[in-house]
């Protein structure tokens, strides 16, 4: 049987979800943002809640997330997405609300908004993409940059005595009574994508049950900022990021 005989509508097993627009993603080749966007939208599609969901985009590389996610979206000021999401969700407790934030947005300028939204147990889902660097502004040090890791503002490596230590926001919010599900995942291999999607699904299912804040970190790459090829970046991430940011569920409902 030839490929052209297989490529027929009745044999279709996977295509891009309709909850992603046809706009060409603004991300660099190999960037995990695209995959993280897509699996989030796949979860909404599979749950049938795309029409009842309002997403909040951050400042950073994913500032244009609303160009790609084919649902109602609001673009928030830098770091303020959890506050914006709080405003929406408090007024529409039956709708689904999520934020999609990078590490600069969530773990530096938006630390207060993140911690307090989680501590209040706002019934929202926070998707946190952590690539240890400020990608949008050109590869500066992030709160999550690893010790010794080079960036344009730590050109000789992050000196923790001088620049402070990386912040593990995910472990931090797991301490708070307001969070019900806190997980750390990755999206660079098929196996990891499947697990990450499962975690995002669980986060939205718990939001449906009004279980408080659900928080999924995705440890991702930044091949442009790290100055590597996408494949090298994924390997570097496995060797360096995962030991510091171990994958798996950190907090699950009892």
């Amino acid at each position: 049987m030839l490929a052209k005989d297989i490529i027929k509508p009745e044999n279709l097993v996977y295509q891009k979800t309709k909850l992603m627009t046809d706009n060409v993603l603004s991300y660099c080749p190999g960037c995990g943002h695209g995959t993280a966007h897509r699996i989030t939208m796949e979860v909404l599609e599979e749950m049938g809640i795309g029409d009842e969901t309002i997403g909040v985009a951050p400042v950073g590389c994913s500032v244009l997330a609303y160009e790609f996610m084919n649902i109602d979206m609001q673009q928030a000021a830098h770091g303020r997405a959890p506050a914006v999401a709080t405003g929406i969700k408090r007024c529409y407790p039956e709708k689904f609300v999520f934020t999609y934030q990078g590490d600069g947005d969530l773990a530096a300028i938006g630390t207060a908004e993140t911690i307090h939204a989680c501590n209040r147990g706002e019934n929202i889902t926070i998707i946190f993409v952590n690539n240890g660097i400020y990608g949008m502004t050109g590869g500066q040090m992030a709160p999550t940059t690893l010790p010794g890791m080079r960036s344009s503002t730590s050109p000789y490596g992050r000196d923790v005595n001088l620049m402070g230590n990386p912040l593990k926001m995910t472990e931090l919010v797991a301490q708070l009574p307001g969070t019900s599900f806190v997980s750390r995942q990755a999206v660079h291999t098929p196996k990891h994508v499947r697990k990450a999607k499962k975690a995002i699904r669980q986060a939205f299912e718990l939001q449906k049950q009004k279980k408080g804040t659900t928080f999924v970190e995705i440890v991702s790459n930044c091949n442009s900022g790290w100055k590597m090829t996408p494949v090298q970046a994924n390997q570097w991430m496995e060797e360096n990021m995962f030991p510091f940011y171990p994958l798996g569920d950190i907090k699950v409902p009892e």
């Binding site: 609001q74 303020r80 506050a83 709080t86 405003g87 929406i88 408090r90 207060a112 908004e113």
Partner: peptide
């Protein structure tokens, strides 16, 4: 809210809806 900054951004979210 936890701050005036958060409060005005909550306003943004609710107003946007």
């Amino acid at each position: 809210a936890e701050s005036e900054v958060a409060a005005i951004n909550m306003v943004y979210g609710a107003a946007g809806a």
